[in-house]
Design a protein around this nucleic acid. Structure first.
Lengths: 183, 183
DNA sequence: ACAAGAAGAGAACGCACGTTCTCTCGGGTT
DNA sequence: AACCCGAGAGAACGTGCGTTCTCTTCTTGT
């Protein structure tokens, strides 16, 4: 097997397992089994679990934000297009393997232990904030703190959906967001 | 040492350690050291780590919501008193050992593994929702989903503060909440 | 004072896991 | 055909941890 495809398969398995079961719960052997990559190769690609966790978070950040951007680009909404973010969330929450935000989860699990994880979560939210801010500017919305306000609603909706208590969290957050933004 | 005080000291140690470092990271021996209760006694009070985790979450829920209620009762705000919730959050976020919501953290860490933890998080948020709803009713606010909307802002603010990105998360959430509620 | 039982300190046990090592096998080179 | 190199399977090693066991000590009742 090619080293690049091994790398890819390991990352794919890590993302699936870490996201669904948590990071500490999933052992390297489970990743070996899921990926079909031998332990030796696995440690050639990622010399320690730490580095695999870091790679998982990095890849998850890139993929999630790309998916969001693609969705927003493909689903223009009438008024401020940033509202499409909540439609994206709505679809995400309904997916069967949804288990909250990987970064909030990782922060809760390892934020008190690993500086690296803390920074990964911080960076993810910061980049999301920057993207939201860009969309707002492109819509000519300059209200102070509007991006931060939307981030409160986004993260609140994710948590609400993750608890399984509120199936309409995304739609409710969208409704609140709509009242915040000038038409 | 009395069995009741042992129980209490163990719970106190568990709350401190689980909250600050996460649940899986903290071993029973660390709880023994922090509480000063011998391992034998510890296992007399809590026959397994599972039960101690459940007790930790139960106690944390009761204590946190009592602290919130006490704060709201002691700090009446001019208009809708439920806004005091965000003042409570603001003070909480500034405390040096703040590390996010214990239930969001536990959900992220063990939500994919332990049904018990998942339900504890769900119940905590549900009870908070009920309390917010009560405060809204007492203020004569009957807007549809107002309590859910506030919960989005509360959880969003907690996450925003936990990442360390937004020191003004509580105040921003309060400002958004104020625009949602009729004067 | 002495027996008896409780309680603490910490060793011990079993297991899981991160990481490394070994053995074997297949495939390419001379 | 003989050899060598890389790769996979999985055993092995060290460690940490949940849980239990043992030994010693201290208290208490008579």
């Amino acid at each position: 097997m090619d080293v690049d495809t091994a790398h890819e398969r390991v990352l794919e398995a890590a993302e699936t397992l870490f996201y669904s079961h948590g990071i500490q719960t999933v052992g390297m052997d489970a990743i070996r089994a899921e990926s079909g990559v031998s332990l030796k190769r696995l440690y050639q690609c990622f010399p320690a679990k730490n580095t695999l966790v870091a790679a998982y978070l990095h890849r998850r950040d890139a993929r999630w934000r790309r998916d969001l951007s693609d969705f927003v680009a493909a689903h223009p909404t009438p008024a401020p297009r940033v509202l499409a973010v909540f439609d994206f969330l709505d679809r995400w929450f309904a997916s069967p393997d949804f288990r909250g935000c990987a970064f909030i989860n990782a922060l809760g699990e390892l934020g008190g232990t690993s500086e690296e994880v803390r920074l990964a979560a911080r960076d993810h939210k910061q980049r999301l904030h920057a993207q939201v801010d860009t969309w707002l500017r492109e819509d000519g919305i300059t209200a102070a703190n509007a991006a931060s306000h939307l981030l409160l609603l986004i993260d609140g909706a994710i948590v609400s959906a993750a608890t399984g208590l509120n199936p309409h969290a995304a739609q409710q957050a969208r409704a609140v967001a709509a009242t915040l933004l000038p038409l």
